[in-house]
Each structure stands twice: as C-alpha cells, then as structure tokens.
Nucleic acid binder design. Structure first.
Lengths: 248, 248
DNA sequence: CGCCCATTTGACAGCTTTCAAATCGCGTGG
DNA sequence: CCACGCGATTTGAAAGCTGTCAAATGGGCG
C-alpha cells in the first residue's frame, strides 16, 4: 500500500511563502526523516535539551510551552499538520521551551544538518523556511497582545478564531466547526487564565450564541459575531488571500 | 571626517549566530541603505503599510507595538543598536504592527530586495539572519509567558533584567545600571499593566533595594536579587556564553 | 515664572483567581 | 449491562491583584 510522504503537508505550506521549482519540491520531499508517533501529553522536546532534529507534523496537534517560577505553565503556540515545529530548537541547539503532543501525533523528525543544507543549497527553500519563521513570529506577537491587553472573553474568542482559520487553511477544518482538542485547562494555559475562568467565559460565549459546545468539540455558531467578540483580524497570519475567503 | 558604517553593529550581532567569511562581511557592509533619523515617538512603520525596507538600528531605541480593539496598546518588542528590526515587515510585505522610535534614533533603511539577494547569494548570511529571526521569536515566547503567567512585580523585574543584559551584550550598558529610556506608561505597555500599577511595582522593587531610581534612569542595585524577583533566566536570549558572564 | 507631561498616591471598583464541592463523561471491571 | 473511579467540567462564594478615577507633586523647558 502506498503511503503519502509525511512531508507533503509541509511542502504545501512552504509554497504559500515562496514559489518553488520542481527541483526544490523534489529536494524537500527527499529530505531524510524518522517517523515517530507520540501519544497525548507525550514530550517531544524538553527545555534545556540539546536538540538535533526539527519536526514536521503529519497528523495530530502539538503545542509548545514554558513554565515559570510559580509552576504555572504558558502555552506559546499550537501546531497542526504541515507545521514545521521547532526550527528554533533545532537551529539554536538548546531548547528554550517544551514541545508536547496535544493529541496522538505522527511526526517526521528531520535532522538539523539536512535542514541547514537544503536551506543553504536552495535559496527558494531557505527563503520559504525563513518566511515560515517570520510568520511564526507574527503569531507570537499577536499572542503577546492577546494575553497582555485583551480581557478574558475576548482572548478566548480570539484563540478560537485563530484555530478555526488555521485549520481551514491547512485543509483540516469542517464546515462551521471543529474538534477542539484541548481541555479547558489547556485553553487557560494558552490565554493566561485559570481553567475555572475559561469555563465561565466559554459559557458566556455559548450563552450569547457565538459557539455551540458538545463534549470536547466547539462549533462556531456565529462566525461574524465571534470575530467581533475576539477582536480578530486575520492579517497577522499572513495567509494567502484565498485562504481567508471563509472569513468574509 | 570618517564615520563608521551604521551597519557595523549589525555585522557584529550576526556574527554571534554564524561564522562569516571576509567576503560575507564585506558584502554585508556594502549593502545599500538610506540613513534616516527619527525623533522620539516618530513612526517608522504603520500597521497595514506595504513595506519595502528593513531597518538596522545605528543608535537609539525602537519598539514595535500592536493596538487592540479597546484602544489599548501592547509593545511586543524593544530594539537597540545593531538590531535588524522588521525583517518581518520587509519580507512579509504587509506590516502587521507598528514600529516607532522610543528615543531619537538613527536607522539604516535597507531595501527588501537587497536583503533577499544577500541572504540567497551568501548562505552564511542567510543563516545568520534566519537565526536572528529565530532569536527574536524566542524572545517573543518569553514575553508571552511573562505577560501571561507572571504577576506584575515579576513581569517588571523580568523586563528590567532582559533590557540590562541585552544592553550589555550590545556593548552599550554601563557598570551596574543604565538609562531606561521608557516612561512608566511605556513600561506598562510592555508588560500589559497600567502606568499606575507600574509605578507601584517600581516602588516595591525600589523599596526592597533591588533597584535605584533617579529621573528616567534605573540602576540595578542588587542584580542577584532582581534576577530572582524577575524569575529571569537568560537562556532564551541565546547569547554567546561570554556575553552572559556579567550575570554570574 | 509658568506650563505641561510624567510621576505619585489614595480610595474604591472590578475582573480574575482561589477554594470547594457537585456533576458529568467515559473507560474499566464485575 | 450496570457499578465504580478518575479526570474534566460546572458552579458558587469570597479573596485578591490590578485597574480606574482623581488629585497632588515634581521636573524640564520656553
């Protein structure tokens, strides 16, 4: 049975950022990698690790987080199929944060050296990866603003909007809702809130008819309303125009 | 009269991240640029701008910020001599945030095309710039954690530590203190606090003998104490070992 | 000397956290 | 098939950190 390369979603994503020649595409898809499956909550990288690989997500969800002195945890980013997680850790040698699986995930681990080589040999790929890093940075900036200056309800709504749009852009969203693979505690760790307050704000959004909830899933009931409630503008994701069409 | 190239501080910084050949250095220093002087509060880039240049700071301080729905502002990064600000805006075309001068600043504006060309033609430079972007991202992550999960006093102390160390690394710090070129309102915008509360927390740090204040300046009175108060660990700055020696 | 902006300080309000307890969902075992 | 058990979700009440509002003080500059 044929299995599609786990690197294809990454290729698709890099092509957002730069136009690649056929030879570039081939070089990307022949990158060496080791497939790895991680169970929920499984650690992929620990802060302080000397890292040697970057990872490409084939399926599942992954998050990165930091731990502060009082033991509290802050999730700094969420990742999904096609994301090139952890170029940071791979190129900077020492990990400055944790990388952990949210759900069961399949990862392609690509050696640091191979990444550096392909980026150096093929400028278009180097540029695409650099762009990817820049977009990562843009999302970080939005999160700083989200956590720093928005109230709890807005923060959560913003997170839900971002996740929906990114899922759609990656081609793994459903019509008007999606499985939110996070517990309320994890949502709190993304937004700098306590799980209790996340629960209340989720209820508030739900009561106002902006979302529907069932079990672990969240469905967006009123996309326009949620965009406003979340003070959400998609520019910072730097998605190609056609990808944000769904937002209109 | 001879004037040193405004690009020299950038060169020095890029050399933290990758070893450059003589030809690389020369190519960097012959990058085309336009010198520009900006007064305090002067806008360098506006959100939504179609940007065409990145800027290298020769002197002064610059910050980047975002504005959320209720009008509040969040500063997402601070920059100083040698920093390559705004590769993001330059390579991603549409600015997703503002760039503004904190103090009178001299900037070298380098055209986007020149940056792309040098990064593509000279892999070592491309890699160094990419690293620089990655370190930027690492600082963003720390800020997310700072704003999201630390209390007000710790946040401020953390910011003061970071600024001190980065100044020292850039070679523009003094012995045991520095001019903090920010108003308390701007400190609040960095930390997600109100100016009033910044004032109180500064007083608290001062009362505890961790810092001394006079006018706009802050002197660090007890470096060890401030590190602890700020839950500060320098790893995320990814500075070369000798640069963090002062922290010991 | 006088104006203006930044800093300080106090009192009070309010959003979010904390602490606790009840309920729910779901996999496991009887 | 139903009971049990554990983690996640909900809800309530009260405390606390930070924000808001207002006014006084201070410092720099014309």
């Amino acid at each position: 049975m044929l299995t599609a390369s786990p690197l294809i979603p990454m290729l698709r994503k890099l092509e957002y950022w730069a136009t690649l020649a056929e030879a570039d595409r081939e070089a990307l898809l022949t990158l060496p990698y080791i497939l790895k499956t991680i169970e929920p909550k499984g650690m992929i990288v620990r802060e302080g690790d000397q890292t040697t690989h970057a990872c490409v997500i084939r399926s599942g969800f992954v998050y990165r987080h930091k731990v502060v002195a009082n033991g509290a945890r802050q999730i700094v980013s969420l990742h999904m199929s096609g994301d090139l997680v952890d170029l940071q850790n791979a190129l900077l040698h020492t990990a400055d944060h944790y990388v952990q699986a949210l759900t069961r995930s399949e990862l392609a681990m690509v050696p640091r050296a191979a990444i550096r080589r392909i980026a150096a040999d093929r400028p278009a790929i180097g540029e695409a990866m650099w762009h990817d890093t820049l977009v990562d940075g843009s999302i970080f900036r939005e999160w700083i603003a989200n956590v720093g200056r928005r109230d709890a309800r807005t923060r959560l709504a913003h997170l839900l909007c971002e996740f929906a749009l990114r899922l759609a852009a990656a081609g793994i969203g459903e019509e008007n809702g999606y499985e939110l693979p996070m517990t309320q505690e994890q949502l709190g760790d993304c937004t700098g809130l306590t799980p209790v307050h996340v629960n209340r704000m989720l209820k508030s959004l739900s009561d106002d008819g902006l979302i529907h909830r069932s079990k672990r899933a969240v469905a967006i009931a009123d996309w326009q309303g949620l965009l406003i409630a979340g003070d959400f503008q998609s520019g910072y994701l730097h998605l190609p125009d056609e990808k944000v069409a769904m937002m209109r």
